[in-house]
Amino acid sequence: MPARIAAVTFPGSLDDRDALRAVALAGAEPVALWHGERKLPDVDGVVLPGGFSYGDYLRCGAIARFSPVMDAVIKGAHEGLPVLGICNGFQILCESHLLPGALIRNDVRKFVCRDQRLRIENADTAWTSQYASQQEILIPLKNGEGGFVADERTLDALEAEGRVVARYLDDNPNGSYRDIAGITNEQGNVVGLMPHPEHAVEPLTGPSTDGLAFFTSLVRRLVTA
């Protein structure tokens, strides 16, 4: 039976369909999940997609964090369920305190949309095991509030514990402290990433297919488990 991976649709989500497509291309069964659900279906992982949930009102991700489905996602994440938050999904994970820090408006004061080179620094998480450590990848980035911030102690802890999953190469697009593009929790099942691997899964539409391994990592993990 193939792995089942859900993508949540919040009001204002944009990339839920792309996430589901990436899941399918990775060989898993995509499961569309509405934000109003109080229970998770039988799934092996959950993607919180990019977009502008609740119009980014109050703060990005602040209202989505209190969606009915998030209670179940947070509970699942604490019990080891793999959760990948991309862009707005990363913001929701920080607002949920599943990941430390916060994401603020880009220091350049502009929405940045471009192909971005990254270095995968932790290839041991549920979502990155199909990369090589220090592998460089190219995937799209598109955000207005993608600046990752945290206090020095938190940043030092993230570095010391190897919880920086990906770092920006070349120009830092948004002022993220220490060029951090993605982080993971202590257990490695929850990953937040500002750039968009789900847009780099097919040669026709992406700058590469470098993003697919986020999704195949989870599929592979389940096969070998």
Partner: peptide, 13 residues
């Protein structure tokens, strides 16, 4: 308010 040590690009604009 944003904490004093957090960059405020909107305020700067």
């Amino acid at each position: 308010m944003l904490k004093p040590e957090i960059l405020d690009p909107q305020g700067q604009a």
